[in-house]
C-alpha cells in the first residue's frame, strides 16, 4: 500500500515554510530583540541584553507618545467611518436593480487598487499643491488648500485613502445582508414597520455578527496602516501623520535602532491584542448569534 502521508506533508510544506520564515521567526526574533540594543549595522553578537530598557525608554519618548496619539486618532476616525460607509454602499447595492452586478464589481475595484503603493503615489499627486483636487477647487471658484502641508488636512488625505478601500468590508456586509431572509422584511411590512424602522429593528440586529467581524478586521488593519503615511506624507507635516508602523519602520531602517523598533512593534501588538480582547468581551452585549442555543431549556 502506498503511504500518502509523505505527499500530504509535501503539499502543506510551502505553507509551513512560509509561516515559519515570514511569521514565526520574525515573531520570536523581534520578541528577543526587543530586550536588546541591537543596531542594524552591527553583527548580532554585539547586541547587549537591556532587560526592559527599551520599554522604559518608550515611557519617556515624546515621539512615541505623539505617534501613539496620531495612531489612535486615525483608528478612531477611520474604523467607524469606513464601517458606516461600507454598510451604506452594501445596503444600496443590495437592492434588486438592473445591472446591479456591474455596480457591485465596480465598487469593489478601489479596494483591489486602494492599498497599493501605486495608488498611494497617485494620491500624493492628486492632493499636491498643483494637484487635481486643487485645480478642481480653483475651477469651482474656491481657494486651493495646502492638503499635504497642513497637519489637519494631511491626516485627512491619509484617512480618505483608507475610507476609499471600503470594498472588502462592503462585500462582507453585502453577504450578511443577503443572508437575512426576505420573509422577515415581508412579515415586518405586514406588521406595519416602515423602511427605516425595519432597518434599525430587523436588519441591524441581525447584521451584528458581520459588523463585529468587520470591526475586528478594521481595527487590526487600521493600527497597521503604513503605505499611506509613508508615501503620501512621509509622516509629516509636524508628525501629524506619523502613525506607529511608520515610526517602527523609521526606527529600524532609518536610525538602525532595531532593538527599540522591535519593542515598539511589541507595544503595537499588545495594543491591538488589547482592543481585540475588549471587542470580544463586549460582543455578548451587542452581537446577536442566531444559531447559538439558549441556556436553561
Amino acid at each position: 500500500m502506498y503511504d500518502n502521508r509523505v505527499s500530504g506533508y509535501l503539499y502543506i510544506a510551502p505553507f509551513l515554510i512560509g509561516l515559519a520564515t515570514f511569521t514565526l521567526f520574525p515573531f520570536l526574533a523581534s520578541f528577543l530583540l526587543s530586550f536588546s540594543d541591537y543596531q542594524l549595522q552591527d553583527p548580532v553578537e554585539q547586541a547587549r541584553f537591556l532587560g526592559l530598557g527599551n520599554y522604559t525608554q518608550m515611557a519617556g519618548d515624546d515621539t512615541f507618545h505623539g505617534s501613539l496619539g496620531v495612531t489612535f486618532l486615525y483608528v478612531f476616525i477611520t474604523v467607524p467611518l469606513k464601517l458606516a460607509f461600507a454598510l451604506f454602499i452594501a445596503f444600496v447595492l443590495n437592492f434588486k436593480l438592473r445591472g446591479i452586478g456591474f455596480f457591485r464589481t465596480a465598487y469593489y475595484v478601489p479596494s483591489i487598487l486602494g492599498g497599493s503603493v501605486a495608488i498611494a503615489v497617485l494620491w500624493r499627486y492628486v492632493f499636491a499643491g498643483d494637484g487635481l483636487i486643487n485645480q478642481v477647487l480653483v475651477w469651482a471658484g474656491g481657494e486651493p488648500l495646502n492638503w499635504l502641508g497642513e497637519p489637519a488636512y494631511a491626516l485627512f488625505t491619509v484617512v480618505l485613502l483608507r475610507l476609499w478601500q471600503f470594498g472588502s468590508a462592503m462585500v462582507v456586509f453585502l453577504a450578511g445582508l443577503q443572508n437575512i431572509p426576505t420573509d422577515l422584511y415581508e412579515a415586518a411590512t405586514i406588521d406595519g414597520a416602515g423602511k427605516a424602522h425595519i432597518f434599525f429593528t430587523i436588519t441591524l440586529p441581525l447584521l451584528t455578527p458581520v459588523i463585529f467581524f468587520n470591526f475586528i478586521m478594521q481595527i487590526v488593519q487600521a493600527f497597521q496602516e503604513f503605505n499611506g503615511p509613508y508615501i503620501i506624507t512621509g509622516g509629516g507635516p509636524l508628525k501629524s501623520t506619523y502613525l506607529l508602523p511608520l515610526m517602527i519602520y523609521e526606527e529600524a531602517f532609518k536610525y538602525f535602532n532595531v532593538g527599540y523598533a522591535a519593542a515598539l512593534s511589541w507595544a503595537l501588538f499588545l495594543i491591538i491584542a488589547l482592543f481585540t480582547i475588549i471587542a470580544f468581551a463586549s460582543a455578548k452585549y451587542w452581537v446577536f448569534y442566531g444559531n447559538e442555543r439558549e441556556d436553561g431549556e
Binding site: 420573509d183 406595519g192 414597520a193 424602522h197 446577536f288
Partner: peptide, 25 residues
C-alpha cells in the same frame, strides 16, 4: 395577517416581542 412557510419569526426577539411587534408599531 400572514403565516409564512418559514415562520419568518424575528430571531432576535422573544416570543412575546415577536407577537407584539405589530402592535408596538
Amino acid at each position: 395577517a400572514m403565516v409564512f412557510q418559514s415562520y419568518a419569526l424575528y430571531p432576535h426577539m422573544s416570543v412575546a416581542e415577536n407577537m407584539g411587534f405589530g402592535l408596538k408599531i
